[in-house]
Amino acid sequence: MTHHVVLRVVAKLIIPLILLFALYVQFHGDYGPGGGFQAGVIFSAALILYALVFGLDSAQRAVPTTAVRVLMALGVLLYGGVGITSMLLGGNFLEYDVFAAEPAAGQHLGILLVELGVGITVSTTMLAIFYAFAGRRAAR
């Protein structure tokens, strides 16, 4: 895939925009449509596009497989950790009201963190699945 100049130039142009859009969807999900799940999928779509155009090896140099696997678990841990933290602060599991003096502010923080956990897990899981399939093909 070294000679697809048009593809490479266009991909270089749009991949940063896709990543930026994913972050927008992630952190603007409270106000507009979107959230962790959609943002995670869009984020991984950008990285998969990179892997398709520039090859699996360069994608794995940019985002190593080990990092993907660790982040996969970290997202779930972040979500669960928010729940445990709210328990430690005297609330119920995943009761965000206790995070701040004002319930609405606590809710906001809790939802932000939880959505971040969802986003991290979804994006890295999609990427891990893609790596597994594409790596399998490369090995044959």
């Binding site: 507009g32 959230g35 995943l94 319930p103 609405a104 906001h108």
Partner: peptide, 15 residues
């Protein structure tokens, strides 16, 4: 009022 978020889908899903 309870979550301070205008997107109810997010507040239902995440909270």
């Amino acid at each position: 009022r309870e979550t301070g978020l205008p997107n109810m889908v997010t507040s239902v899903l995440a909270s």
